[in-house]
């Protein structure tokens, strides 16, 4: 059985927000280390990988590996019934056919305990092996800045070319009617304050669909920083780390530009 108690429902709400438009159904793989989700979008362009460490929960117990097949739309609805600061407990039996969620709130006048149950499903999803990659460039920046850049450029065109060079990192969008490019320079003062960093072994140029990057940047509510890992001709890794775990996205580049 699984019993996992989170100190705030907001974490799950934000995670669902950051996943549900890419993937409609996914297995939450629960084991003694924590809860993990890995799923690809229907078009096989993007993959999302979420990890919640057992240590990130107020209480965590999982006796044996348990895949919970979740319809993310249904879970989103059930989580909407929780207040952000409610204590949230997830429970499932070994047969994994029902997920129960309990929300506990202490208000000034009374204690409220709300219990919800949702049906689980069998999901036959093939897990992809993600190879360990030594990336040529690693860029860390404020997640709000990344959100702004991809959102702005998505107004102009449907793809973005990302160039990492000695100059810094440049985001370029060539639309039919307008184009734009944004350069972020490695700034000694900024890196001293650890606002961001650019590390590069060799120059990298890659082109990606902006709609996915806009989607990924929904994770800005989970972490103040985002890390972009890039090598020529391999998928981009966009990683957000938070206290209880991480969410990572892989995005296949556009080819033959």
């Amino acid at each position: 059985m699984l019993e996992a108690k989170l100190s705030e429902a907001a974490l799950l709400k934000r995670l669902l927000d950051a996943v549900k438009e890419l993937v409609s159904d996914a297995n939450f793989e629960c084991n003694e280390e924590g809860i993990q989700l890995q799923a690809m979008d229907n078009s096989h362009v993007a993959l999302v990988s979420v990890k919640l460490y057992a240590s990130g929960f107020k209480r965590y117990r999982c006796d044996r590996p348990l895949p919970l097949g979740v319809n993310l739309g249904s879970l989103t609805k059930v989580l909407k019934c929780a207040k952000d600061d409610d204590i949230c407990t997830l429970k499932a039996g070994d047969d994994a056919d029902i997920l129960s969620l309990t929300y506990e709130a202490k208000s000034a006048y009374a204690d409220r305990i709300a219990e919800y149950e949702m049906k689980l499903m069998d999901i036959d999803a093939d897990q992809l092996g993600i190879p360990d990659t030594d990336y040529d460039a690693s860029v860390t920046m404020p997640s709000s800045e990344f959100l702004r850049i991809v959102r702005d450029l998505s107004l102009l065109g449907e793809s973005v070319r990302i160039e990492v060079s000695k100059e810094g990192i440049r985001f370029v969008s060539d639309g039919e009617a307008a184009n734009g490019n944004i350069l972020i320079k490695q700034n000694a003062e900024a890196s001293g304050k650890k606002k961001g960093s650019i590390e590069m072994n060799s120059a990298v140029t890659l082109t990606f669909s902006l709609k996915y990057l806009v989607n990924f940047s929904k994770s800005s509510s989970l972490s103040k920083k985002v890390q972009l890992m890039m090598s020529n001709d391999v998928p981009l890794l966009v990683s957000y780390a938070f206290n209880q775990g991480h969410i990572r996205y892989y995005l296949a580049p556009k080819i033959g530009d």
Binding site: L47, Q127, L128, G129, T207, P235, A252, P253
Partner: peptide, 14 residues
């Protein structure tokens, strides 16, 4: 114009 690559070209089955 560029074509969208697939993750299946990069990530194999475990």
């Amino acid at each position: 114009p560029s074509a969208q690559g697939s993750l299946k070209d990069f990530f194999g089955k475990p």
